[in-house]
Design a protein around this nucleic acid. Structure first.
Lengths: 210, 210
DNA sequence: GTTTTTATTTATCATCTGATAAACTGCAGT
DNA sequence: ACTGCAGTTTATCAGATGATAAATAAAAAC
């Protein structure tokens, strides 16, 4: 039954580093950053000092984990597609959340993100800024256009407007939190959830016209 | 400037226990449960072994923290008021989230909740069950009635329907996560956010009638 | 005022934990 | 087959960390 877990064979430095990094992602996603190097090594089937041949400190390994998980996961094409008015807004939003969720609503991504946020890692604030600038502000603008409200040139987007869009965005993100952090039973058909949430948001906003 | 922090005076056991418990709530909310007893003691202005006179183990202190923060925070009156059809649903939902958020969208509550969820504490699953049963399922029922859809007796509430309501609920909860976990700047006028989210949700659902 | 009680501190333990150094071993080059 | 390089392990350290026992001191009891 494959009892030998890719055991203590000699690997090339590149392979070993990659193996450690990927193992560390899984490990820290599960245990948080206070997880211990010995337990990580055990899980990798190597000895603990070997980690220090590839990463000078535990902290440096954690920072490599951040890079690996968060670098270049937001494709700028997606946010450009958000503003392509040749497509109906409902479709644009559904497509966007389909792509976005596939990239980020993953177990390791979500859990490491929450751990890092609780630990006040700068990663979090940086990422939030990106989300507001590249995703939520564009959605606000498109939403105004959809509802026939004044353009951004007339009055700029304010905090209340941004927070209103955050409710849908956060609500969808929260689906991933429920799945990967709470480990609740959630409906697997996420596209259906997105489609309903987007429809409701669009029709609701059109109806109430604040 | 009150440099002496309620210093090393002798306190009655009740007062000391209360002081430790309240300090522990603040402390663990900030550092997570891997925060160290010596640092907690320092923050309280007492020595570390004194903690062990009042709590046999660190774990027992953590469990007292859970009790203190989460016991009886959900007033059953709120969920009853949700189903009182003599009031318009919009008002009922706004009132509910106003009360609910005041009780739970607090720094210590939110942060300890996220820490405990990531650590797979049973607290979390228990609480989620309560939310679905006492809050979200009733909202689903009221929403059907509001939209003129078939009653619960005809077809029961399914996972998709629950998840749809979770999007608004989670979106509002996520506001508190942004504030207390991410520590982002959020608009302070939460009632306005709630009112808009509820209006949008109600009108949107009426409009699309899935 | 003396004694007793008990809240609190000091001193300390055993284990854990990140990190280092030296020994070992598989493999490439000759 | 021998040699040397480099990937890996064993042994170990120093400081941290949860927990305990004995000593101290403030308040209560007499």
């Amino acid at each position: 039954m494959n009892a030998k877990v890719s055991s203590t064979r000699r690997l090339s430095p590149e392979d070993r580093e990659k193996q450690i990094l990927e193992g560390a992602i899984k490990f820290f996603a599960e245990k948080g950053f206070s997880g211990q190097t010995r337990e990580l090594a055990l899980q990798l089937g190597i000895t603990q000092p070997l980690l220090y041949r590839y990463f000078p400190t535990k902290r440096s390994l954690i920072e490599r984990v951040f890079n690996e998980v968060y670098i270049n996961k937001l494709d700028p094409v997606w946010s450009e597609a958000l503003t392509d008015r040749s497509q109906p807004l409902h479709k644009r939003l559904c497509d966007f959340y389909c792509n976005y969720s596939e990239a980020t609503y993953r177990n390791e991504w979500i859990r490491i993100y929450m751990f890092s946020a609780l630990m006040e890692e700068p990663l979090n604030k940086h990422y939030i800024g990106l989300v507001e600038e590249k995703i939520l502000a564009p959605i606000c603008i498109e939403l105004r256009h959809y509802c026939g409200l004044p353009d951004i040139d007339i009055n700029p987007i304010d905090q209340i407007e941004l927070d209103h869009v955050w409710v849908m965005h956060g609500g969808l993100f929260y689906h991933a939190i429920r799945k990967h952090v709470y480990r609740s039973r959630v409906s697997s058909n996420f596209n259906e959830i997105v489609s309903r949430a987007v429809s409701t948001m669009l029709e609701g906003n059109k109806a109430i016209q604040h």
